[in-house]
Computed example of a mutant assay.
Amino acid sequence: MSSPKRRIETDVMKMLMSDYEVTLVNGSMQEFYVRFKGPEETPFQGGVWKIHVELPDQYPYKSPSIGFTNRIFHPNIDELSGSVCLDVINQTWSPMFDMINIFEVFLPQLLRYPNPTDPLNGEAAALLMREPKAYDTKVKEYVAKYASKDAADDDDEPSSDDDEMSSAGSFDSDDEPAGQMEV
């Protein structure tokens, strides 16, 4: 049995060597940002989100927490805090999964198949159920406004974090990212 620390290093190295753009926070392998692109053939296509990831000391036995730093319109993602409602992952998380699974399977599936019956964003859920075409339109508006490559890049200014964040519509403070959720 390998130690959680070794497993964290292995999983993060896999992410760093993948096609994903990964930025470690203060050189720590337990906190980093990953650039995530919206899945093809969905209203999220063309969007780029910066995902904040924190790995608990007990990883992989305890699931990572993830959150979107730039805004997204989706029934299972809180629009302001970026927290993700992924009960599926929380309940079925297994040490067999790794970080790549989250970005190649879990998040694309979440964006492709939203669950409006268990919403974190009631407005998105209601719109998806009542007017799916209007929902798609609003998702595309958010992608254009908040998830362009430039919008995700704006987030990278370390000193003016708060200004950039609020202009991107996020209300996280520097101390503790609001609403980071277990995945």
Rank of each mutant, 00 (worst) to 15 (best):
P4H: 07
P4D: 09
P4C: 06
P4K: 13
K5E: 13
R6C: 11
R7C: 13
I8V: 06
I8N: 01
E9F: 12
D11W: 01
D11P: 10
V12Y: 01
M13T: 12
M13F: 09
M13C: 14
K14D: 11
L16H: 09
L16F: 09
L16V: 06
M17P: 15
M17L: 15
M17F: 15
M17H: 12
S18R: 06
D19Q: 11
D19M: 08
Y20F: 07
V22D: 04
T23C: 13
T23I: 13
T23W: 11
L24Y: 05
L24F: 02
L24T: 02
L24R: 05
L24K: 03
V25G: 10
N26P: 00
N26K: 04
G27P: 04
G27R: 02
S28I: 10
S28L: 06
M29F: 15
M29I: 08
Q30W: 12
Q30T: 15
Q30P: 07
Q30V: 13
E31T: 14
E31D: 10
F32G: 04
Y33I: 07
Y33W: 11
V34M: 08
V34S: 01
R35K: 12
R35G: 12
R35E: 11
K37S: 14
K37F: 11
K37G: 08
K37E: 13
K37W: 12
G38M: 03
G38V: 00
G38R: 06
P39V: 00
P39C: 01
P39M: 00
P39I: 01
P39R: 01
E40C: 14
E41M: 14
E41R: 10
T42C: 00
T42S: 01
P43V: 09
F44P: 09
F44I: 01
F44V: 03
F44A: 02
Q45E: 14
Q45F: 05
Q45W: 12
G46A: 03
G46I: 12
G46R: 06
G46P: 05
G47M: 05
G47C: 10
V48A: 11
I51P: 01
H52I: 06
H52C: 03
V53H: 04
E54M: 14
L55H: 05
P56D: 11
P56V: 08
P56M: 03
D57F: 10
Q58G: 10
Q58E: 15
P60I: 07
P60F: 00
Y61L: 06
K62C: 07
S63N: 06
P64E: 03
P64K: 00
P64S: 01
S65F: 07
I66L: 09
I66K: 04
G67V: 10
T69M: 07
T69W: 07
T69G: 08
N70P: 10
R71Y: 07
I72K: 09
I72L: 14
F73E: 03
F73M: 11
H74L: 03
H74S: 05
P75F: 09
I77R: 11
I77D: 03
D78P: 00
D78E: 13
E79M: 12
L80Y: 15
S81G: 07
S81R: 02
G82P: 02
G82M: 05
S83G: 08
V84R: 01
V84H: 10
L86A: 13
L86W: 04
V88Y: 13
I89F: 15
